[in-house]
Amino acid sequence: MMDCRLAQQQLEQLKPENEPGLLLHLRRCGDCREYAEDLRIARLLRSMPAPEPTAGFESRVLDGAIRQSRPARLVGNATGWKLATAASLLLAVFLALPRQSPAPAGPVGQLAETARPDVVPVTLALNSGRALAGAKIRVVMPEHLEVRGFENQRDLQWRTDLKAGANRLTLPVQQRTGRVNDVILIEIEHDGARREFRVPVPDGNGAEVRGQDAQGMQTI
């Protein structure tokens, strides 16, 4: 005589045809009949169909969402930053705009290739006297330039680890309308200390320029 435990084990195995012993048990056992019906319903529910989305669904909903809303800022905002003496920060910044014509000369110019006609890679070199883990970098673009992917967002902030020595960062910059001969503001903050660099931007004829700190002192 089959018991409930064995009957329920056999029901769970989903055999194409049930054994005579199981059928006999089910005829006599209300609990196992209920269990069998619950199993049948559970299997039907688990395989309940749903339509596939139409072609291009993923691109449609992602493009729509991104088009309709953009973040106001990259990270937080600049208010409340501590002004500190920057004795521990030995940073230097220079900026290299690629020469459009003639061909670039020198190592920096070679690195700054112009990938697209409307995008100018702008290279920043940050020389640090020591490693600065989790340093906050802030870049404020002038009116006539913007970073590709962050259009209409002039104030960009993020955190990164600066290694001791030279650290290079290339920004994909594109031209906007507005006045030229402005400055890119770069701030580095680490452990409460902050240093600010103002990097003059020429009108795109490819000059290499050097950053000056906020006090007007040449830093390179």
Partner: peptide, 20 residues
Amino acid sequence: MTLLRWPKRPEDRFTALVRP
């Protein structure tokens, strides 16, 4: 020289997160 990684565009980060 260390290459610093420019932060990924928000749309790329968002797409990578939610697309799966």
